[in-house]
Simulated assay, not measured.
Amino acid sequence: MSGLTTIAFDADDTLWHNERFFQLTQARFAELLADYAPPVHLAERLEAAERRNLGRYGFGIKGFVLSMIETALDVTGDKAPAPVIRELVSAGHEMLAHPIELLPHAREIVAALAPDYRILLITKGDLLDQERKLAHSGLGDLFDGVEIVSDKTPPVYARVFERHGAEPSAAMMVGNSMKSDVRPVLDLGAWGVHVPHELTWGYELVPPPVGHARFRSLPNLGALPALVSEIG
């Protein structure tokens, strides 16, 4: 066993696809409101609403749907047709039931590391939705601990690591978001490993911490075991 004892994984767009369903629904949203505003304008208004509402609704599909409805009312001057609102609600229901599609290497890598390391899942979002996705992923039995949090900040990570008996200096967080999965854990002295996904919500995009001694970027999860061995 090396000095590394704990490896934590993000869930959405790190172990399984997620953002693609948001983008497909957003395209549907643009079609429904095409008579009221151009797609670019709608996208800007929707993202502004999502950011504004994070403190109220948190992260996840339910907040996204409420932000779509709010934006639809705003751009139509509170005259959004009832069928449009119903369609947006239906789109949310479909998102909450979408099938789970694991990303390449997800199962094999988590399974390969599990015998030698404490393996955690740290994900943010709606509790019921995240529990559903984990249950349908088939990965649940591989984790020593699962944490569904409202946001990912240094204090949140510190509490999670402490709860699971992990020293930050001996912990690694792996995820697709530079903002949520990498930078906060680097502040604690842990390893932050960025595995980019082709689709990333604008809110999660921040510059990489180039030059930080504990920051690493990998092309995919398949490269993780080699990195773990190198760090050890």
Rank of each mutant, 00 (worst) to 15 (best):
residue 51 R to V: 04
residue 227 L to K: 12
residue 202 G to V: 11
residue 195 V to C: 07
residue 29 F to D: 10
residue 47 E to F: 04
residue 137 S to K: 09
residue 214 R to I: 06
residue 192 G to R: 13
residue 27 A to C: 01
residue 207 P to H: 01
residue 183 R to T: 11
residue 145 G to A: 14
residue 81 P to C: 12
residue 166 A to P: 05
residue 110 V to T: 03
residue 171 A to F: 06
residue 51 R to C: 01
residue 28 R to L: 11
residue 124 K to D: 01
residue 175 G to P: 08
residue 63 G to R: 04
residue 53 N to I: 01
residue 214 R to D: 11
residue 89 V to R: 12
residue 95 M to G: 02
residue 61 I to E: 04
residue 64 F to E: 05
residue 215 F to Y: 15
residue 42 L to G: 03
residue 21 F to A: 12
residue 58 G to V: 08
residue 214 R to V: 08
residue 178 M to I: 15
residue 3 G to P: 00
residue 155 P to I: 10
residue 114 A to I: 07
residue 98 H to T: 13
residue 116 D to V: 02
residue 117 Y to W: 06
residue 74 D to M: 14
residue 205 L to E: 15
residue 159 R to V: 05
residue 207 P to V: 03
residue 158 A to C: 01
residue 93 H to Y: 15
residue 170 A to I: 05
residue 196 P to Q: 15
residue 60 G to K: 04
residue 91 A to R: 03
residue 197 H to R: 07
residue 90 S to F: 10
residue 130 Q to W: 07
residue 7 I to C: 09
residue 160 V to S: 13
residue 13 D to V: 06
residue 34 A to D: 13
residue 152 K to W: 10
residue 153 T to I: 07
residue 4 L to A: 01
residue 109 I to P: 02
residue 165 G to D: 09
residue 37 A to M: 08
residue 159 R to H: 13
residue 118 R to S: 08
residue 101 E to D: 11
residue 60 G to A: 02
residue 225 P to Q: 10
residue 142 L to K: 11
residue 6 T to M: 01
residue 42 L to Y: 12
residue 29 F to A: 11
residue 64 F to H: 07
residue 126 D to V: 07
residue 82 A to Q: 08
residue 3 G to N: 14
residue 32 L to M: 12
